[in-house]
């Protein structure tokens, strides 16, 4: 699971509440190489939560990797963009857990794939409730 994925994952709860951002605990992390695409990154920055990315990096022990506040005119900062690329797309969480900050519900990450399935009972509680951002 890449951190771009973590950035958009949430636990839908009853009453339209959401568990976001999910706490990330990683026990196995890989680094992979992905093709750099600045236009994609800039397009995603509009809809990603930058502070959530910073927090996710902290949770996996990569503090100070990116500035805490998104720099202005970041598109002109090549070093920043490369680091952003690395953070979002090249860090791969292979084993670990995602934990809902509201309910404490744990979602395992196995073999790089988070399992976000709810049990039947949990699903019934969420059913037909609006899921707000």
């Amino acid at each position: 699971m890449k951190l771009i994925t973590h950035n958009i994952l949430q636990n839908n709860m009853k009453d339209g509440k959401k568990g976001y951002p999910l706490v990330l605990q990683a026990t196995k992390i890989d680094k992979v190489i992905a093709e750099f695409n600045q236009e994609f990154l800039l397009r995603m920055l509009d809809r990603l939560e930058y502070h959530v990315l910073i927090h996710a990096l902290e949770m996996i022990g990569m503090k100070d990797f990116l500035p805490i506040i998104l720099p202005e005119n970041c598109s002109e900062d090549e070093a920043f963009m490369k680091n952003l690329h690395h953070a979002l797309l090249e860090i791969d969480i292979i084993e670990g857990e995602l934990i809902c900050p509201e309910s404490g519900r744990k979602f395992p990450i196995k073999d790089g794939i988070p399992n976000m399935l709810l049990t039947d009972e949990e699903e019934m509680a969420v059913d037909s409730e609006p899921k707000s951002k």
Partner: peptide, 30 residues
């Protein structure tokens, strides 16, 4: 929902999530 299919999909994408289509674990407007 099927983890065995997702395992086969790993050769096509590193962006995979086991989830139910009636309850998407994603932020709105994404």
């Amino acid at each position: 929902t099927c983890v065995n299919l997702l395992t086969l999909a790993k050769s096509s994408s590193p962006f995979l999530i086991q989830a139910d289509t009636t309850n998407l674990p994603f932020s709105s407007n994404t």
